[in-house]
Design a protein around this nucleic acid. Structure first.
Length: 560
RNA sequence: GCGCCCAUAGCUCAAUUGGAUAGAGCGUCUGACUACGGAUCAGAAGGUUGAGGGUUCGACUCCUUCUGGGCGCGCCA
């Protein structure tokens, strides 16, 4: 446990004891005491609203309760220097911040593990994300999902969850057939033949390339084989090429999956039939109008859903239920799915299916990523994979860069719709806040390097010399890191980490401009400050790693 | 028509999940090293949190009605 958490726990305990000693409540009547960090410094290091919360139980005015608490509080044990009662009954606590300096030793010792907590307690979580159909390039929306999903996984891992990342490949359905037909058309066109694209074909540039590629490689070989054989080959070929591209793009984006799960494999291992049998046993499916239906209305869905059509084939839902059952059978306790907003209507039926199989509804959590609007020349660009008018992840990486993208997507909470101004991203990428944070890291590297050149290190430093306000602010922020991780994990909100590291960087820059770290006339102070800098450096790097952003030793600026 | 999401500074977004004076970036304006990197810093201006009603000590946050926008609503995937 880190020193900050220890101090907070101690304060909470002392407040609890004070309530008991003042005869305001029995120990078991006291709710969890919440310590808040006030926005305004005049309100202390911590504030608690416990007096207001206890007003009903104790049947007294909040301010009166607050006074009682203050009188009975053991300020020595809780390291409290001063207490105020303010407003309707807030208790503001001003701490002796001496304990904070111990943080530096802790951070320097823990290094890249600093910040890790164990609120997850080894809970097994499967996060499924991106899962785009292998029928074309990943676009901006997928990039957002990938950036969010990967950061979330990193954070869950840092919070002590046992996380797996998975990509579900829809390689069995109709859309793959359309892919094959689209490739066929492009292939024929590449050979100079008149050939119409299929109704629901994929019009992307990448498919045109595949058609050309095949024409060059195999000539007109596929014109002369039976259609069935040709389509089968194009299907397999297209799938392989598209999937490889997706894997490569994601790897370049620094997103790595533990498992690529193929829909086809569900059929090969008869999982779909087994799932239907299980639903049958539980009497969760029935027949009507020649089709088989899932009783999803039993679990809050609008209507029951077809699982076997009257032509005997499955709907999209059926293998998907089998897939989710398979996840659960592999021992995952919580399933987190990250879906685009255009699939949100699908959530109730999937949750219903989970319950129909006998699992609690909370087992499946769906995080919905809102749409990304692309703005170019001040106008919204309508994105569509079908028409091929989409900005791809790859293009975006070439123009903006991985770090800026991953940082940008994780400054927003995932349920906000957001506009991505392409012109802004192109022309002002140097104004992107990611450089601000990276610069803070690089600055510290430079300082440490220069100190080393002068033969100064921070061995035997005395952290109690760090007393000025900006140093205390930095220390407090450093101490907040573990809690930020726990918070971000619990709320599935990586943007809290991004905000955290931005704030830490702002404090660093401010400090840097106000105080000189390397003071050759004061070696003791220099050592202490260098140690602080090293601790900030570690923390920035750890935070950036969670978001998937590189922490550079030096900053290079592109020359115009 | 029904369901989900959203509406906060000129623009893009936050807000410790019900807390005190709603904060950042960009943009605008004023300042700062012959100094460890100026991709920085110090400061200013900018708000009836879409509108109305309710809940309570206290509301951007919860409930309700309305307005505006996005996305869904198939025996498609």
């Amino acid at each position: 446990m880190n020193v900050v958490a220890q101090v907070e726990a101690q304060i909470k305990e002392e407040i609890k004891q004070a309530l008991v000693k003042a005869n305001l409540a029995k120990e078991e009547e006291i709710p969890d005491i919440i310590l808040e960090k006030p926005k305004v410094k005049a309100h202390g290091d911590y504030a608690t609203n416990i007096a207001m919360q206890m007003a009903r139980v104790a049947k007294q005015a909040p301010r009166k309760i607050a006074e009682e608490i203050v009188q009975h509080l053991d300020t020595g044990k809780a390291m409290i220097e001063k207490i105020d009662i303010a407003g309707p009954g807030f208790i503001n606590l001003f701490l002796d911040n001496g304990y904070l300096t111990k943080l530096i030793e802790q951070i320097l010792a823990e290094k890249e593990t600093y910040g890790r907590v164990n609120t997850g307690k080894g809970h097994k979580v499967l996060v499924e994300f991106v899962s785009a159909n292998p029928t074309g390039d990943l676009h901006v929306g997928h990039a957002r999902g990938a950036a969010y999903g990967d950061a979330l996984c990193n954070i869950l891992d840092a919070a002590g969850y046992d996380v797996s990342r998975e990509y579900y490949i829809n390689d069995a359905g109709n859309q793959i057939h359309n892919l094959a037909l689209s490739i066929e058309a492009r292939y024929m066109q590449a050979l100079g033949k008149e050939w119409d694209m299929p109704e629901d074909g994929y019009h992307g540039q990448d498919i045109i390339e595949i058609g050309k590629e095949l024409a060059v490689k195999d000539g007109d070989k596929w014109v002369h084989v039976p259609e069935e054989e040709r389509i089968a080959y194009f299907r397999e070929y297209g799938l392989k090429v598209e999937l490889e591209k997706i894997k490569q793009d994601l790897a370049n984006f620094d997103v790595h999956f533990d498992n690529w799960f193929s829909e086809t494999s569900l059929y090969e291992t008869n999982k779909v039939e087994a799932t239907l049998e299980k639903l049958q046993e539980k009497e969760m499916i029935y027949e009507k109008d020649g089709a088989t239906w899932l009783k999803s209305t039993k679990f809050g869905d609008d209507k029951d859903r077809v699982v076997i059509k009257n032509d005997g084939t499955y709907t999209y839902l059926t293998p998907d239920i089998a897939y989710h059952l398979n996840k659960l059978e592999r021992g995952f306790e919580t399933l987190i799915n990250i879906w685009g907003a255009d699939h949100h209507g699908y959530i109730p039926r999937m949750k219903a299916a989970i319950q129909a199989l006998g699992y609690a509804p909370e087992t499946l959590e769906v995080e919905v990523i809102q749409m990304v609007n692309l703005i170019e020349d001040g106008e919204k660009v309508k994105m569509s994979k079908r028409t091929g008018r989409a900005l791809t992840l790859r293009q975006l990486m070439e123009e903006v860069g991985k770090d800026a993208m991953r940082y940008f997507f994780n400054t927003r909470s995932c349920d906000s719709h957001l506009d991505f101004d392409l012109d802004l991203a192109r022309t002002q990428s140097n104004e992107n806040p990611v450089y601000y944070v990276q610069y803070a890291h690089a600055r510290i590297c430079t300082m440490l390097e220069q100190a080393a050149e002068k033969g100064i290190d921070f061995s035997g430093f005395d952290s109690s010399l760090l007393k000025n306000e900006k140093e205390i602010d930095l220390l407090k922020q450093l101490g907040d890191f573990p809690k930020t991780i726990a918070d971000a994990a619990e709320k599935r909100a990586p943007h809290l980490v991004t905000q955290y590291v931005f704030d830490l960087s702002a404090l660093l820059h401010s400090y840097y401009n106000a105080e000189k770290v390397i003071k050759e006339d004061n070696l003791d102070l220099t050592k202490a400050r260098l140690a602080l800098m090293a601790a900030v450096k570690i923390t920035i790097a750890n935070a950036l790693k969670l978001i998937g952003v590189h922490a550079p030793q030096k900053m290079y600026r592109d020359e115009e």
